[in-house]
Design a protein around this nucleic acid. Structure first.
Lengths: 180, 180, 180, 180
DNA sequence: CATGAATGAGGTTTCATTCAT
DNA sequence: CATGAATGAAACCTCATTCAT
């Protein structure tokens, strides 16, 4: 398979990391478009399917690896920003790095327990943000931190989501969030 | 297969329509629950797979037909209800008739041009609702009618959407929607 | 796939039974030789893999179907013959109809509960044979009816089994079986 | 991988043998339990798969090597024991060291010519045992030494074989073996 | 018209084997 | 020599679609 593209050249061992990157990059591209077979990921990375499986023994594992990094960034920013800034930043990232979006979706589906690690971490981060905002009176107390995530996911990812409108709708929502 | 149920009677005409209905109903049920093969649809409709294909020559065709149905209901209600009532009703329907949700998603994806007919009709309906609401001062004029659809999709369908929270979040949005 | 062999000819519906037979025959041949993929069975039957799966939705189902018939024959004869005659007959069948042999193996593996139906039936038949033989004083009472089956399996199927020797060894066993 | 266990030492020679042993031991364990990939063998031996292949260039080669080992033991005992003791011992070994059983099976399949070396040796050993037993009048002369092997294989390995019953059935057989 | 058997492409996964390091 | 990453053939299974009856 590879042989057809580089008849003689044999990939050296040190390329392992490189291959991993290739697979992740390919996976990012493929997962973007709803669906996508692992075979396609391998093909796009110009690697054998076996290689993919060596690096990521299950579909889930690949998924997680693709998105782990994105989630980390979000988590970090949650610690630094205020609620509004953070939400705006998230929308921004969603607009530009489409990969992250797909990443977050499963995180907030309670069923998917295998994402628990990342899920827990980011939820904790958002919970802190939320708590601060409630204290400051910027958020009605009957709206939970999970609600905030939901809205974010929806605005950035839901069907019909449009980055160009997301900011405005976020503002609308934040306006509505203030306790009456 | 069907022959066993209607041993003698060779119904001529109305059965056609009946079958179409059965198929649509079955498709709705099957598409609801994440996936489902056409074979399963046919089985549930107690019809042969061949019959399904006579009525709907591709999977897409069946999808569209199912979706047309739901959209009509929404359209009708849009003419009767006020904005808030309508939105609540839509959320309600989303919560109970999961099929509709899946149906609507493509409507707001601009790429899917084959849905254009229904898409245009419901958009027109919502536009009317929106116009009234803006006139009444219930909606900031910089929020478009498509934005309203987005919000609905988001609350009812987006990742992590939870019917139990949707009503509250809709209220928050509507609060935020009022011109300052 | 079939098309390549019979470019125009389309198999008529009535061939369904024929196909079933073809699959069973192919399975018998393939299963004979330790292992064998379902794909190979389909290939040998000159049918698509999908067809195989339509007829036998699981590997187990195919297995059972292949051997159900053989077991029936054994069962019938058990009712008619005496112990020695029956055992000789079984060895005879094992020697000629290799399929049956493979059939019986799982029957006497206690783990495979899915064969329980056939397993139970034939065991019952042998138990009756055994009971009669014990009464007649032809079989030591500490040898069970399952033991008898074991011996048969061993002589007819075990590694190195040789039909040409089986009769003699059976005789040896029967001699040994007499209560001292 | 191994490097981590032996950080500095570059053992020159004896390690080779050691590795071979480790691989054989691991293979024995793995082959025991129905299947098992070569990768698993290597892992269990705490060696690289490449190393495995250096020692045993094909799966078959490994199999044979494992088998040779077991057969040697049997051969040695055949020289020391009497027939009954030896047969009991074999059954004993079969019950505890399942690996050996799988190993022996091919020996008595006349098709597998590659096992000929070991096959010949053990056959010779059994032939000697058999000859002695015939002389002593313990074995009907029309029963061959291969027959003895067959029975043994079958009782210990055939379908439905049960170590708990094997001893009794062996006794039955030996009883039957006595010339009338 | 209705039926459902047949098809095979395509997805997932495993594993023996090769080869650069 | 030892290593293990890479490979891809091959197994398993599902499902949209076609077509003879």
């Amino acid at each position: 398979m590879m042989g057809e593209e580089t008849p003689k050249a044999r990939k050296p061992r040190a390329d392992q990391l490189r291959n991993r990157e290739r697979l992740l990059e390919a996976a990012r591209e493929v997962f973007r478009g709803e669906g996508g077979s692992l075979e396609e990921v391998a093909r796009r990375a110009e690697l054998g399917i076996g290689t993919l499986y060596r690096h990521f023994p299950t579909r889930e594992a690949l998924f997680q690896a693709v998105y782990a990094r994105e989630v980390e960034v979000l988590e970090r920013r949650a610690a630094e920003d205020g609620l509004k800034d953070w939400m705006q930043a998230v929308l921004q990232m969603m607009a530009t790095k489409k990969g992250m979006v797909a990443a977050l979706a499963p995180v907030f589906e309670p069923e998917s327990s295998f994402f628990s690690d990342q899920s827990l971490r980011i939820r904790a981060a958002v919970a802190a943000l939320h708590a601060r905002a409630v204290e400051e009176g910027a958020v009605r107390p009957d709206v939970t931190s999970d609600d905030l995530m939901r809205v974010l996911m929806a605005l950035g990812y839901g069907p019909g989501a449009d980055p160009a409108r997301a900011d405005l709708l976020l503002e609308v929502f934040l306006d509505g969030l203030r306790p009456r």
